[in-house]
Amino acid sequence: MAVNKETVLTIATLAHLEMAPDQIDDQIDRMNRILDLVDEMQAVNTDDVEPLATPFDQVQRLRPDVVTESDQRDKLQTVAPRTTDGLYLVPRVVE
């Protein structure tokens, strides 16, 4: 599988990234190199290599349904660019 111009533009749209036309070729090249690296890794013979420790045989622990967090709004909103009436303000999102 190789990345082409269309793939790059689709990914840019999904990621909400602006991409100048002269950046596209460079991006295609970079992404293809990542895929090449994956191909290279997959080609390595790992038959006698012990797998790393993974959590995949573990299961999730659940938490009791108890409220332990308290209101931190004032503190949390100090890092927000714009707030008013307790709300976070963002550029208008409806058309």
Binding site: R82, T84, D85, G86, L87, Y88, L89, V90, P91, R92, V93, V94
Partner: peptide, 14 residues
């Protein structure tokens, strides 16, 4: 998202 009361902006209550 609250669109009504904030001119040109959207208020977000999480």
């Amino acid at each position: 998202s609250l669109h009504e009361d904030y001119a040109g902006e959207t208020g977000v209550d999480l």
